[in-house]
């Protein structure tokens, strides 16, 4: 009798909450990320090196604006850095999780599946924020980037980063199902990301791009995230450098918000807990 009572007690105890486990996953994911030196270097160094490189090569000013090319790059590379930390990192990381048995093992536990995604999203948020801070520090100390002084710009910065990160992370989770194996993941995920950076105004101003390329990049979140970031760091003068002469913040919010919803739908529709070889 005592054993059956004990057995009952064992399995009627409440299951841990999905939120608590999501936070626990986030802590573990973040710790694992920072211990994997290769991934840390891969994620952080790329935008930092490019910012220092471009900032040193192009030190001119845009006529009559008082804005330097390196300041424009800082804003653009913050966007690219966020997308790298969220999209690229998750796209590759989850493809590896699928192959090394992480997903299969987790699927066999009572962990709610949402906790895995909450963990991935939050850990990529931490990584992306750190990246933003580093790039901002470089911009401020090396390229006279001015941090916004009014509250509304900080509010804009917050929603652009949160929406941009969430959309990019969800897109990364969805994209993780594309590579056939963990080995090919880095190439499959990084290639479109690099192309997107070139056509989204990160390295090359829109004024230099043919309209059809701009049309393509306007579909994706990176262009809009960078545009939102420029509005924060380059101020009113910088708006004249935009194609439409305006930062179009309403449209930025709309497109980034649409990507969060679209990314979520895409994840729910396409996510695979199994590798291709698992049948």
């Amino acid at each position: 009798m005592t054993t059956t009572a004990a057995e009952k007690a064992t399995h009627t105890a409440p299951l841990p909450s999905a939120l608590a486990l999501g936070l626990s996953r986030a802590a573990v994911e973040t710790r694992m990320f920072f211990r994997e030196k290769d991934a840390v270097i891969f994620t952080f160094s790329f935008p930092i090196i490019l910012l220092v490189l471009f900032g040193s090569i192009f030190s001119d000013q845009f006529k009559g604006t008082g804005i330097t090319v390196s300041q424009v790059y800082t804003a653009g590379l913050i966007g690219a850095g966020v997308m790298g930390a969220a999209f690229q990192n998750l796209g590759i990381g989850i493809a590896i999780d699928r192959e090394d048995g992480t997903l299969k093992r987790l699927a066999g536990t009572p962990m709610p599946r949402s906790a895995y995604f909450v963990g991935k999203m939050l850990s990529s948020l931490v990584i992306a924020l750190l990246e933003v801070l580093i790039l901002l520090a470089i911009g401020v100390f090396l390229y006279e980037l001015e941090l916004p002084t009014d509250v509304s710009a900080w509010v804009t910065l917050t929603w652009v980063l949160v929406l941009g990160m969430a959309g990019a992370a969800l897109l990364g989770i969805a994209a993780s199902s594309i590579p056939r194996s963990a080995k090919s993941a880095a190439a499959v995920i990084s290639m479109p990301f690099v192309v997107l950076q070139f056509i989204s105004g990160v390295y090359i101003p829109f004024t230099e791009l043919p309209p059809w390329l701009i049309n393509i990049s306007s579909v994706f979140p990176l262009k809009w995230m960078c545009q939102g970031l420029r509005s924060v760091f380059l101020g009113e003068e910088g708006a004249r450098l935009e194609l439409t002469g305006s930062y179009e913040l309403g449209r930025v919010a709309l497109v980034l918000g649409a990507w969060v919803i679209g990314g979520l739908v895409l994840c729910l529709m396409t996510f695979r807990w199994k590798g291709r070889r698992d049948g």
Binding site: A9, T10, H11, A13, P14, L15, P16, A20, L21, S24, V28, R31, M32, R35, E36, D97, D100, G101, T102, K104, R105, T109, P110, M111
Partner: peptide, 22 residues
């Protein structure tokens, strides 16, 4: 399985313990 390679034995086992009610 080759997962959780960067965590220690104790960290991994403690983390998985949190998934279960008892």
């Amino acid at each position: 399985a080759n997962d959780a390679a960067e965590l220690t034995v104790r960290e991994t086992i403690r983390h998985f313990a949190a998934y279960y009610p008892m």
